[in-house]
Design a protein around this nucleic acid. Sequence first.
DNA 1: CCGAATGGTACTC
DNA 2: GAGTACCATTCGG
Length: 155
Amino acid sequence: MAIVTGSCRFGLWHVHVTWQDDLVYRVRFARDGIDGPVPEEILRYCAGRPADLASLRSIATEGESTNARIYRTVRAVPCGGTVTYGEVARVVGTAPRAVGAAMARNPTPIVVPCHRVVAKTGMGGFSPDVAIKEALLAMERRGNVCTPEKRGVNR
DNA sequence: CCGAATGGTACTC
DNA sequence: GAGTACCATTCGG
């Protein structure tokens, strides 16, 4: 299986994904869509249906670089929850600003849920548009997309 | 509220 | 490779 690229819709945006099997190389938001396949879990997530993003791997979390540790820490944040840049920094042993910079250059948003990392004083940023971050968080707070396993107890 | 400290990365020579 | 300019922060004065 070769590396492929495709896109799916999320609200007003299109999510472009470059991937192979369960390994995601690149995710980016764009205004236009392209033809091609997208991992099943990302399709479900973008559609607001239950999705298990943890079953996907990201190249961003490979290796022992500081950034890889930052991305792994962010990936551990539960669906619907948030942490601050400073909290992530303290876990990894780096500076809050380094976390912000790592998020800004996150090669695989969604798979590495960088939208769950917020500033201590407010929302923080997101590229290309902070509205995407707000929409993702709002969607997760609704609870429909969050992985089923931990939700069974609640209802 | 303004300004400095802070760790890393991308980009230039 | 070294040097430098960014960066989606934070905390103190």
